[in-house]
Amino acid sequence: MGSVLASDQLYVRETVRQSVKILIVGHFAVGKTTLVGALSEIRPLRTEERMTQAGEAVDHLAGVPAKTTTTVAMDFGRLTLSDDLVLYLFGAPGQQRFTHLWNDLARGALGALVLADTRRLEESFGVMTLLEERGLPYAVAINQFDDAPVFPEEELREALDLLPTTPLVTCDARDPASSASALIALVEYLISKHQEPA
């Protein structure tokens, strides 16, 4: 704890008045934590939420036996984008049943970046459905692993059943510039959505 508190970067810059969040989502081991870590200016942090089997958050420390709860971890990082504004990136687990956690994460989020792996594209469907159910706009980024097959964009779009307007990009989650480019594609899409009449 001492070393964390000693860090200059621990606190949000004095001038910052606004905070926004973008979710980084995808199936197990797709690179969510890696992408958050590549972009974050603080050591990525983790919060854990105790959920009941029914998917409700346990918002007190005592009284619920541990065996009736599951712990869900979220990684997140922070980027100061201007004197006024910070962006938080939350790496969120794709499990469908944690409805409460998902509602909490999605509320107020600008949008989501869905990371996908060409070796198991179908495992991305669940998380895309979760986003669609909540009306949260998203872009898809193929996290290109070294030994994963490379497909033409049209085949990927068809396999993922993307709308023609949904951005599809390729990234290397370990690389900050590549990861920033994927987020830029998402934000450009959000701006374009905003300009079309509702």
């Binding site: 008045r17 980027l79 984008l81 962006l87 600008l110 900050p176 830029i184 701006i191």
Partner: peptide, 23 residues
């Protein structure tokens, strides 16, 4: 952000500019 006198569009552009500055 929701309480601020700034349009969603302005906010998104500020996010975009901040990300571009990281490239």
């Amino acid at each position: 952000a929701a309480d601020r006198d700034q349009t969603e569009d302005q906010l998104l552009r500020e996010v975009l500019n901040g990300l571009r500055a990281r490239l």
